[in-house]
Lab assay of single mutants.
Amino acid sequence: GLPPGWRKIHDAAGTYYWHVPSGSTQWQRPTW
């Protein structure tokens, strides 16, 4: 699974990851 606080988001551009507490997003899968 993903580290705490991360969500996987799907949209028209593809899949990305959202860090809910900080509001940051990234294309790379977050690592622990």
Rank of each mutant, 00 (worst) to 15 (best):
Q26S: 12
S24E: 13
H19M: 06
V20H: 06
G23K: 04
T15I: 13
W32Y: 10
Y17G: 00
W6G: 02
S22Q: 01
W6K: 00
G5T: 01
Q28S: 09
G1S: 13
T25L: 14
A12H: 10
Q28L: 10
P30I: 00
H19Q: 00
L2H: 01
Y16T: 00
G23S: 04
Q28M: 10
W32S: 10
G23I: 00
W27S: 13
G1T: 12
Y17P: 03
R7I: 15
H19T: 01
T15K: 03
G23D: 07
A13L: 14
W27N: 10
G14H: 07
Y16K: 05
T31I: 11
V20S: 08
W27K: 14
A12W: 09
P3W: 05
S22I: 02
P3A: 03
T15W: 10
V20E: 14
Q28V: 08
R29V: 13
W32F: 12
Y17W: 06
A13S: 14
L2V: 04
T31E: 13
G1W: 12
G1E: 13
V20T: 08
A12S: 12
R7F: 13
P30L: 01
Y17D: 01
V20R: 05
I9K: 05
P3R: 02
W27H: 11
P30M: 00
H19E: 01
W18G: 03
T25F: 14
K8N: 04
L2D: 05
A12T: 10
A12Y: 06
H19W: 03
Y17A: 01
P21G: 06
R29K: 12
P4E: 08
G14R: 06
P3S: 03
H10A: 11
T15S: 09
T15A: 10
W18E: 14
W32V: 09
P4S: 06
S24T: 15
A12L: 09
W18L: 15
G5Q: 01
Q28N: 11
G1M: 12
A12F: 08
P4T: 06
V20M: 10
G5H: 03
H10Q: 13
W32T: 10
W27I: 15
D11P: 00
T15M: 07
A13F: 15
P3N: 01
L2A: 03
P30H: 04
K8M: 15
S22V: 03
W6I: 00
W27V: 15
R29A: 11
P21Q: 07
I9H: 05
G23T: 01
W18A: 08
V20F: 10
H19R: 01
I9S: 03
V20L: 08
T25D: 05
P4D: 09
D11T: 15
G14Q: 06
H19I: 01
G23N: 12
A13M: 14
L2R: 05
P4A: 07
Y17R: 00
P3Y: 00
G1P: 13
G23P: 00
K8W: 09
A13Q: 14
G5E: 04
P21F: 07
W32Q: 10
G1A: 13
W32N: 10
H10E: 15
R7E: 13
R7T: 13
W6M: 02
W6P: 01
K8D: 06
G5D: 07
V20G: 07
V20N: 03
P21Y: 07
S24F: 14
G1F: 11
T25K: 15
K8T: 12
R7M: 14
D11M: 09
K8P: 08
A13G: 12
T25V: 15
I9A: 05
H10I: 14
T31Y: 10
G23R: 02
Q28Y: 10
S22L: 05
R29F: 11
P3V: 07
P4Q: 05
Q26G: 02
L2E: 13
G5M: 02
P21D: 09
P4N: 06
D11L: 08
H10F: 09
S22E: 02
K8G: 05
W6L: 00
L2T: 01
G23M: 06
S22Y: 04
P30G: 02
I9P: 03
S22T: 14
W18P: 02
R29S: 08
G14M: 06
W32E: 10
R7L: 15
H19A: 03
V20A: 11
W18K: 12
Y16M: 06
D11K: 08
